[in-house]
Amino acid sequence: MPVRRGHVAPQNTFLDTIIRKFEGQSRKFIIANARVENCAVIYCNDGFCELCGYSRAEVMQRPCTCDFLHGPRTQRRAAAQIAQALLGAEERKVEIAFYRKDGSCFLCLVDVVPVKNEDGAVIMFILNFEVVMEKDMVGSPAHDTNHRGPPTSWLAPGRAKTFRLKLPALLALTARESSVRSGGAGGAGAPGAVVVDVDLTPAAPSSESLALDEVTAMDNHVAGLGPAEERRALVGPGSPPRSAPGQLPSPRAHSLNPDASGSSCSLARTRSRESCASVRRASSADDIEAMRAGVLPPPPRHASTGAMHPLRSGLLNSTSDSDLVRYRTISKIPQITLNFVDLKGDPFLASPTSDREIIAPKIKERTHNVTEKVTQVLSLGADVLPEYKLQAPRIHRWTILHYSPFKAVWDWLILLLVIYTAVFTPYSAAFLLKETEEGPPATECGYACQPLAVVDLIVDIMFIVDILINFRTTYVNANEEVVSHPGRIAVHYFKGWFLIDMVAAIPFDLLI
């Protein structure tokens, strides 16, 4: 008679799926529990143990900040960024110097990925580790590398530091407007667009060049630039800015003055950032001319202004700041037409079709709590990747769950009947059967004279019903998954307890 339990259901295979997918890609990662103190490590794979030199037993239950890997060259700011990422709910990448158990130093890129439950609360953290440099290539500990984003994938490793954006290309926007319009339909740009040429040739750093990471940081200074100062900065030398009595002219307006920039070969870094931020506020060169004239017309309804409409929906549905990093990277690809469009465009503009998908598509409701890094690593669709929660398995109709209350009560009843059979069957065979043979035949009273025979008949009927119930009862397979398919249940029961239950259900007393 089957006594099969499996009270692990309803099970959740999400954690096993993450481990299996990460292991298949030869990654070095740990999984931490966000619900406990210090976000203790609950799993670390073999790749991480080989990377740091510690065994799994030495890593388990330690804080996922990996303070046991810190050393003299470990930056405090990087460690603080990892700790801050564990307090938030967004994906974050941090470069930090770690030390192995043998004392060797290596520069590592740590990717902190939160995993949320159905309520939107962070319950786990996945920390992925990628070695960037070994100890002989690690720089000085005073050099802070965590304020910069990861290198873009479309640049060669040897040319990542030679990417320079020439400031004269930004200063000569109005001069290039006529050349853009003359391109017409034969050019790649839309009317009114501004073409910015980027020099990728390796050259020595000069005062006129600005690194790509500095251009990325310009967006942080746009908020500090007032509207009046932006307007004066875009007017140009024809209309000098008016300053109040006793007030000095704005240095932001002076930063885009061609006369002032041409007199000296070098520009201050602050002026460069502010000038680029001011130019980015204009949607095209037409807006710059309109600002000089004193009238700013409404933005025209053409394809170039609607190019950012799908980007707005993608940004609203993005799951991490990696989408913004990807957008900034692609927006700086050289030799393309940049349409400086305000994100607050007309909502009635139709979304044009684009061959290049900048932001990841909208994630469906079932995966809105899973970050983009987890979705990318697992390579699963929205119909396959579940949320991290207890999910009731989908069972067929008329199927009994093996952990249901009805099955528990039924098993206790069958257990009592088995005990009765084990006690009274030998007793009936030894004593009652002998008395029946010696006594007179009682054929007239039937079952009324033999109450134990009636009980034995009921017990046999219950055993037959138990066999039928076992054909529709779920079970737990070797992978700790609840199986509810009727065919698989029948095959599993035939290979197991079916023969024993059938022999126990045969009414031998009635056959004798």
Rank of each mutant, 00 (worst) to 15 (best):
P2V: 06
R4A: 13
R5Y: 13
D16P: 15
I18T: 06
I18P: 01
K21G: 06
E23M: 03
R27C: 14
F29W: 01
F29R: 01
A32Q: 01
N33F: 01
Y43W: 05
C44E: 01
C44A: 14
N45H: 01
E50T: 13
L51D: 01
G53H: 01
G53C: 01
S55E: 06
A57I: 07
V59S: 01
Q61W: 08
Q61E: 14
C64W: 01
C66P: 01
D67R: 05
L69H: 01
G71E: 01
G71K: 01
T74R: 01
A80V: 13
I82Y: 05
A83S: 12
G88Y: 13
G88A: 13
V94P: 01
E95T: 08
Y99P: 01
R100W: 01
R100V: 01
C105I: 10
F106I: 05
V113D: 11
G120P: 07
A121N: 05
V131H: 13
M133V: 13
E134Y: 06
E134Q: 07
M137L: 15
G139S: 15
A142H: 05
A142T: 13
A142V: 14
A142L: 08
T145L: 09
W154L: 13
P157E: 06
R159G: 10
K161P: 08
T162D: 15
F163A: 15
R164T: 06
L165T: 14
L173S: 14
T174W: 15
R176W: 03
E177W: 10
S178V: 06
G183R: 08
A185N: 07
A190Q: 15
V196P: 01
V196G: 01
D197G: 01
A211H: 15
V215W: 09
A217T: 06
M218C: 15
D219N: 15
N220W: 06
V222R: 05
G226S: 06
G238P: 05
P240R: 07
P240S: 09
P251D: 13
R252S: 14
A253C: 14
L256P: 08
N257A: 06
P258T: 11
P258M: 13
D259P: 05
S261Y: 09
S261Q: 06
S264N: 04
S264A: 14
L267T: 12
R269W: 07
S272T: 09
S272K: 12
S275C: 12
C276V: 09
A282G: 10
S283N: 13
D287R: 04
M291V: 14
R292A: 14
A293T: 05
P299I: 08
P300Y: 15
A303I: 08
G306V: 07
A307M: 12
A307Y: 13
M308W: 05
H309C: 12
P310S: 13
G314T: 09
N317S: 07
D323W: 07
D323V: 04
L324W: 08
N339E: 07
D342T: 03
L343Q: 13
K344M: 12
D346W: 05
P347N: 03
S351K: 12
P352V: 12
S354L: 05
S354N: 15
D355F: 07
P361Q: 12
R366I: 12
V370E: 03
V370N: 04
T371D: 04
E372F: 03
K373C: 07
L378E: 01
V384K: 05
P386E: 04
